[in-house]
Simulated assay, not measured.
Amino acid sequence: MKLPSHSRYAPSAIPTRPTYTWPNGAKLAVIVCNNIEHFAFRAGMGSDSAQVNAPQSARNYAWRDYGNRVGLWNMLDMLDELEIPSAHNVNSAALDYMPEIAPALLKRGDEFIGHGRSNAERQDTLWEDDERRLIVETRDAITRHAGAPPTGWLGPYLAQSNVTLDLLREEGFRYMMDLPADDQPFWMATRAGPILSVPYSIELNDSPAMVFRQHSGREFADMITDQFDEMLEQSKKRPLVCSIVLHTFVVGQPFRLRPLRNALRHILTHRDDIWLTRPGDLATYATNLPQGTIPGSEMLGEAR
């Protein structure tokens, strides 16, 4: 039996790969990714605080809008307090909607990652020309606000069409985080050359954990602590990436922010043992490792 498959990357069991270290000899990289999203009013797509697949309403629009009005600022205060660098998966519509956002991220030196125009839509249902337009409009809007184009991409709802990776590479993106397939980066083939997959957790992610599975803020904080402790132990054998995924309208709520802060403080007790970084910096480091180190790097060739 031959199952439907893809031609993007080859099978690779993690124990069989070359070992390497992150900067300063660290074996565990930790990235904190925050999602900044904007939605259509009573239309399109969007999650709900109380039930899955709820119709769009003024109430759930306002619940999500809390993230831009209040939650993000709570989170940035916490990240400043703990001196944690961060990256932000940004809907370009959010930057137009709330003009205070981009200057605040620039002040922190944080990374802007393309996250579509809005999470009211997804790209995997679009024709190729329309999907390219979505990617280009997102890139150009972020460039206008951030002063430089984003190099990384996370699609709304981590959705991909058959040509998403091709379009991203053709429009200048060098890494993406849509595929939660690994705890290490790996290269994927596109018709325009290789693009890097940077680990992005769908498990250690506040939206599916607390919105869809209805875990509490304290349970989510325990997940972070357990994931970090286990990965720190596993990283004695091989380099790993621990990604922590947040949303402004979820953990930006004060009662969830407090246990999250405690979990991050726990991670910081090991600050000298880890590489606390951003996805773009991790992608740059991985790209510059010797060919043959990162799975799929034989595709790089002259693309370095």
Rank of each mutant, 00 (worst) to 15 (best):
M1T: 13
M1R: 08
K2N: 14
S7Y: 06
R8S: 12
Y9S: 15
A10L: 13
A10K: 12
A13R: 12
I14M: 07
P18A: 12
T21H: 14
P23M: 05
P23V: 00
K27E: 00
A29Y: 03
C33M: 09
I36A: 06
F41Y: 15
F41S: 00
R42M: 10
A43M: 03
S47G: 07
Q51T: 14
S57W: 10
A58F: 11
R59F: 08
N60M: 09
Y61P: 04
A62M: 09
R64W: 11
R64D: 05
R64T: 08
D65Q: 14
G67K: 02
R69P: 02
L72E: 00
L76K: 09
L79Q: 14
A87E: 02
L95H: 03
Y97S: 10
A104V: 01
L105I: 15
R108I: 08
R108H: 09
R108S: 03
R108V: 07
D110H: 07
F112K: 01
F112T: 04
I113K: 04
G114H: 05
G114S: 14
S118I: 07
N119S: 10
E121V: 12
E121K: 09
R122E: 13
D124K: 06
W127H: 14
E128V: 14
D129P: 00
R132Q: 15
R133I: 01
L134W: 12
I135Q: 05
V136F: 02
T138H: 02
A141L: 10
T143A: 14
T143W: 00
A146S: 13
G152K: 07
G152C: 08
L154W: 02
L154Q: 09
L154K: 03
L154Y: 11
Y157D: 10
L158K: 09
L167V: 01
R169I: 06
R169W: 07
Y175V: 09
Y175P: 01
M177R: 08
D178Q: 09
A181P: 04
A189F: 02
A189H: 11
G193R: 04
P194I: 08
P194Q: 08
I195A: 06
V198Q: 03
Y200F: 15
E203G: 07
N205A: 10
D206T: 11
A209Y: 03
V211A: 07
V211F: 05
R218P: 00
R218C: 05
M223V: 00
D226P: 00
Q227E: 13
F228P: 01
K236M: 06
R238Q: 14
R238L: 12
V241M: 05
V241G: 04
V241A: 00
S243F: 03
V245E: 00
V245Y: 04
T248N: 15
V251W: 02
G252M: 02
G252V: 01
P254V: 07
F255Y: 10
R256W: 02
L257G: 07
R261F: 03
A263S: 13
A263M: 04
L264G: 06
L264W: 06
R265L: 10
H266R: 15
L268I: 07
R271Y: 00
D272A: 15
D272F: 03
W275H: 06
T277W: 04
P279Y: 04
G280Y: 01
D281S: 10
L282S: 11
L282P: 09
A283F: 13
A283K: 10
Y285N: 09
L289D: 10
P290I: 13
G292T: 14
T293A: 06
T293S: 08
I294E: 02
P295S: 12
G296P: 11
G296S: 06
E298D: 15
E298Y: 12
L300R: 15
R304P: 06
